[in-house]
Amino acid sequence: MTDLAQNLRAVRDRIDAAARAAGRDPATVALLAVSKTWPAADVRALAGLGQSDFGENRAQELVGKAAELADLPVRWHFIGQLQRNKAAAVARLGAVVHSVDRTSLAQALSRAGEAAERAVEVFLQVDLGGPEGELGARGGVDPAELPALADAVAGLPGIRLRGLMAVAPRGADPRPAFDRAGELAARLRADHPEAVEFSAGMSGDLEEAVAAGATLVRVGTALSGRRPLTSRGDTGVTPVTRASGAPG
């Protein structure tokens, strides 16, 4: 069994165990493989193992990788901070956008969705703050402003509101933050019944996220090993070396 196959099985086993520990059906938690900085060959290999959803955080890399893998039946997700001038390129790929945190971005995506004649599926990213609770550390909308943003997004014609996305603060116990995000996700569903998804949890904290109700976990390091050193240029991220080792 290849390293990728072993890692994929290990991650899926972790998700299943976390779901059962929380009294949930493992089938209610999906895996999003974070493929940023890795070559298209890794995506192709994981797709061959049955993985269907992949996440990128740079528009240029997403566009290039999607073109190279156009023959695969995979679903792309954009998980980074998205600039409005990149919205159309992401929307044309049918990518799910996880990081909508302001009305202006939602409006740009709505226009792109209308132009593509296909609604853009989006998550609203909520800011859970840093270790001391300060906002702005990981991106997202202030929780107090989430209801107004949700109402604005739900009213746009070229968008479909899919749910809430959150990232735990660095250097702190993730469980309280995820519990808070889970409460916000429940309130969002109550106001907008179509927003049924809760995207939270990464390689190091997926168990806490699943316990808090996450329906989608975003895992990269635990699948492909530690990220390679990269050189950043105007066209995106180019891997320089491939690291191997145990999941992070």
Score class of each variant (00 low, 15 high):
R12E: 13
G225A: 06
A177Y: 01
R111S: 10
T235H: 15
T221W: 03
D234V: 08
R24Y: 07
R180N: 06
S244D: 11
L135E: 02
S203R: 06
M165L: 03
L49N: 01
R44D: 15
A66V: 07
A144F: 01
V153Y: 02
A144R: 15
A22T: 10
K65Q: 06
G163C: 05
A88V: 10
Q81T: 11
R12Y: 04
D13Y: 08
T230K: 01
K65C: 07
L128W: 09
R242I: 14
T230H: 03
W76L: 01
D3S: 13
D25C: 00
G182H: 03
P247H: 11
L32V: 00
L149N: 08
E197Q: 14
A243I: 09
G64A: 12
G213K: 08
E117N: 14
F54N: 01
R218F: 04
D71C: 11
P143Q: 08
H77I: 01
R232D: 12
G182E: 02
A67F: 10
G55R: 06
A166H: 06
R242Y: 12
G136T: 12
R162E: 13
A95Q: 10
G23Y: 10
S231G: 09
A177K: 01
T2R: 14
F54M: 00
G182W: 01
L216I: 14
G158Y: 01
P176S: 07
L93A: 12
M165T: 03
G50C: 04
F178S: 07
R232H: 13
S199G: 11
G48K: 05
I79K: 02
I159T: 02
L128F: 12
G55N: 13
E207I: 12
P147K: 11
S231F: 07
G248L: 15
E145K: 14
A66C: 12
A172Y: 01
E117I: 06
G225P: 05
D205F: 08
L128D: 09
L223G: 02
R58L: 11
D173G: 12
L184F: 13
L184N: 13
A222M: 05
A89M: 05
W76H: 04
G204T: 12
R226M: 12
F78K: 04
N7Q: 14
R24T: 06
D13F: 10
A246N: 09
H98P: 11
T103F: 06
L69G: 09
R226S: 13
V120M: 05
N85I: 00
A67Q: 15
L8D: 02
G136L: 13
F78N: 03
A185W: 09
T221S: 15
G171W: 04
A30C: 07
R44K: 15
R24V: 11
A33S: 06
A243G: 07
S104M: 09
D13C: 08
P193Q: 08
A95L: 09
A47N: 05
R14C: 12
A30F: 03
R9K: 13
R162H: 10
A115Y: 02
V167T: 09
Q107D: 14
A106P: 13
L149Q: 07
A106I: 03
A172K: 04
L105V: 04
P157D: 06
A17T: 11
R92C: 00
R75G: 00
P73Q: 08
E114Q: 15
V29E: 02
D234A: 14
